[in-house]
Design a protein around this nucleic acid. Structure first.
Lengths: 224, 224, 224, 224
DNA sequence: GATGAATGAGTATTCATTCAT
DNA sequence: CATGAATGAATACTCATTCAT
């Protein structure tokens, strides 16, 4: 048995169509939020159902009344997350101004890291484990989206609106760089002395990032 | 009780001065390697001592003869890793050519991701957990090193050899971008269809990264 | 590390105020009884949780659902025991007839040894280990009670109702002598050929003891 | 399998005839002394071979070179102890003065408790476990000795030199009362505030005991 | 809906003992 | 004689899950 394998990944239907009362809705939300916190820190295997239940303020039995098993919770949290995760990239408008569009994208990604650092970390954790659950999403919808937006970048480059960089690696760079503020927060904080939650720090990070990504390191003729 | 807390983190001396026989040295090495593999995937809590022992090709009892506890193994693996981790940045030479120096640095970091992806992931995992074990290293030696090298970058900027970018965020960007090829490998592979272990892919990644970091996105006057 | 040290001895509140259902009450009682049997024979370290669970007729897991740890069971058993243990001495009435009072006391202690030999042995075992758990009870409530009753004995001596013997050592003698029938049962049985559970034997022991303690060994003028 | 049963109790030959070098003799002695300390506190099951080895200042492997197993050590310690244990009673001289003889006996027993408290406790521990190892000694040599000395006491009583008390229970009383100072030391110390190791305390105890045993509690005509 | 009771498979660690040197 | 290496059987305790109410 492959230890740590999430059982039945992807086989169960989303079952999101079941009608729910208000109290059910509220409890599910509380569970998902608590689960996000625990899974994001400890990964699937390291997380404990007890802790999730405690954080959600209910008994373990009750929690398992809502989600039949640990892996079901995990998958629900991930599913919940994926949409919000992909949303920013979808907004990249081929007809917009490249600098504005990309700045907005970077800003959204940074904001996501600031607003939902646990979501970012959960995503990272899933990756570190080898993406057992979202592998299909990566190879399907995500790849399709990236391909589409790469075309946009290539299109811009052809028009001379940006330099002809490799679009895929640019996307990787933007992802990595914006997520690092959530995923590697302890490192960031140890070095800068500032929490990622500090508004000023976030503005400064955005400024530095866009400056770097747009301007590059090499001196530009005519610039100071 | 804070669940998942690694007991006595950082209190024990490195104790690397203990004299060891050849067989001890060999077994310790086998254990550390196996432990790296498991911890990097599942984190501290999610890892199982049984699995480490099996991967190391010895009985669990014998493993515990060498390392008294799970947390001792974890700390040993991290300690083992930290030096190699910091090494590349140390080589950044203030008197060298900025482009050459930074290219070499980026290359080394990419190489590290390619050669020791598990080490990279273990580091990421420790971060996601909140860096309970290496917190002190981050705030101490690492911060000191970053401060020193930031000075180098500032110095280069003052001489007009690079644009005056924020040095700290530049370092974060390089770290994040190079590590992502190890830490988010499933994503990279799903999107590019190529393994990170592919030599051609790595060259392409290095090319794309340096091009981006040095040249930036905005068109440069006089360039095609 | 002091091996065999019972963790957190005495730090937790009695917590006997927690409301309990009937089934809880019943199971706790079964566990405590089984634990008494095992701890009294093998001491804290020598006892096995498995065995306690088996003797209590439940799974080990279920046992640990009621008492979180071995040491918790041990402390609960001891606490349960201490009251019954001290009760007889408390009944010693200063205004009663010394001979009647002391005879009654000795009889109660012998009865306790006969009825709860395991409790007596558990107490002995705790002593042999150095009384890690009940040390505070000894120095506090027990000492106070002994001091009080010593006064009673001294008072009786002053009135000429008993000879002026050392009250503390008299109490030690009574304790030791009555408990020995439980604690050293194998010896008693090997030598007398009779079980301590034999009613006739117990009457004979009480007779012999009181005769000795009141009359002493030396011949009394006027007695046969 | 009866847990806690000492394997092969009594089946192996004493094997004390093997010729030994000086260093062997010394090491055996060190082991036995260390074992006495550990077994007396924790009983057979609760004792740890590691701890005995550490206390004896040698490696566990070396210890097991001298005594093949834990139970062998245990039996050797007990055997070592039994002779010294029985010796005092053997000295009781039928032709001596009862008061002198018994006082000397009580004194010797108290002295034993003071000099070898661990031996006393080990004996107690063996009893609490049900005397699995020395059961035969109890029913054989010990019973014989007690029977013999009971005759002496009866003989004295017939001559009117002591009151006609039950000799067996008298012996039990003397045993229990003298051993309690070693076995229940924590209790004694908590109540009296004095260590059993205090010379003055021991004299006082002897005085109180003999006074009680010989004189009894009831007032004697003609005494103050 | 919700909870307490119960459990079997796991999980880290200990321990007596054996083996090789 | 003595020790380091190795192990299998414990051993205390955890954890996801099921069951009864």
């Amino acid at each position: 048995m492959e230890a740590g394998r999430i059982p039945d990944a992807g086989t169960e239907p989303e079952s999101d169509g079941a009608p729910r009362t208000r109290i059910q809705e509220k409890n599910r939300a509380r569970i998902l939020e608590a689960a996000l916190g625990t899974f994001s820190r400890f990964g699937y295997r390291g997380a404990r159902v007890d802790q999730i239940a405690e954080d959600a303020g209910m008994s373990k039995s009750n929690l398992l009344y809502y989600f039949g098993s640990k892996s079901e919770i995990y998958k629900a949290v991930l599913a919940d997350l994926l949409d919000r995760w992909l949303a920013p990239l979808r907004t990249l408008d081929p007809d917009g101004d490249p600098r504005k569009e990309l700045t907005a994208y970077i800003e959204q990604k940074l904001q996501f890291s600031a607003d939902y650092p646990q979501a970012s970390r959960l995503f990272a954790n899933e990756m570190l484990q080898g993406a057992p659950v979202i592998r299909d999403v990566l190879a399907g919808p995500l790849k399709a989206l990236v391909d589409e937006k790469s075309q946009v970048l290539r299109h811009w480059a052809e028009r001379g609106r940006i330099r002809p960089v490799d679009p895929t690696h640019l996307i990787f760079l933007i992802w990595a760089t914006t997520q690092t503020y959530a995923d590697f927060a302890p490192q960031i904080e140890a070095i800068t002395g500032t929490g990622v939650h500090d508004e000023a720090f976030r503005r400064q990070a955005l400024q530095a990032l866009t400056d770097l990504i747009f301007g590059g390191l090499l001196p530009r003729p005519g610039s100071p």
